[in-house]
């Protein structure tokens, strides 16, 4: 590179007006490299391996946290699937977490209401459980008219799962089937 630099200087010198300039630039010069000290913003971060939550390729990511706050998410170069690369969505996972648009409160909309109300999570869970039980009890079918055992309700629908953990899928289908909910679906079919 020193060669290129020298060539550069020669080129500059050959450049007429610039020649003078190279000689009389005060305190500044184009050629020498300056090493500017700076700190890497993930220098003291904790690194946690994760997986991109978008498509089904399963690119590996690394999550950098400082003091429990996520400061950066990027590809994990160790992954034989993705080798550290990501698509634009994967490269933007940080913004899934750190985003002023993120919804962070439990909300409740009463029947007929025109607006949301922030509610306590425990209250909301209790209320959902009560509604669930009411609907199940009202709609549960033990046997069809022809005597076939059904043991189910079709008045409750569980939707979702393809973007969620295996563990959740197991838990959800277990709870639903345990309660007799048979209408369980996710994106795999549509």
């Amino acid at each position: 590179m020193s060669l290129t630099r020298r060539e550069f200087l020669q080129a500059t010198l050959a450049g007429g007006g610039t020649a003078l300039g190279s000689l009389i630039g005060l305190g500044v010069s184009l050629a020498p490299a300056i090493a500017r000290a700076q700190t890497l913003r993930i220098a003291n971060a904790r690194v946690t391996p994760s997986v991109c939550p978008y498509c089904s390729v399963g690119c590996a990511t690394l999550v950098h946290t400082i003091g429990g706050e996520i400061v950066n998410i990027e590809g994990d170069p160790r992954s034989p699937l993705s080798e550290g690369t990501l698509c634009p969505k994967g490269a933007a996972i940080y913004q899934l977490h750190k985003n002023p648009n993120r919804a962070t409160r439990v909300l409740h909309r009463a029947p007929g209401a025109a607006t949301w109300k922030e509610v306590d999570a425990e209250w909301a869970l209790d209320r959902v459980a009560a509604l669930f039980k009411k609907t199940r009890d009202e709609s549960f079918v033990e046997r069809f008219a022809d005597g076939t055992v059904a043991n189910h309700t079709t008045a409750i629908f569980s939707l979702g799962g393809a973007i969620l953990d295996n563990e959740w899928n197991h838990l959800q289908q277990k709870l639903m089937r345990g309660l007799g909910v048979v209408a369980i679906e996710n994106q795999a079919r549509i």
Partner: peptide, 14 residues
């Protein structure tokens, strides 16, 4: 003035 060195800032070719 160069903000990071305090030296005068001058480039005759600029």
């Amino acid at each position: 003035i160069q903000s990071n060195t305090g030296w005068p800032m001058f480039k005759a070719w600029s």
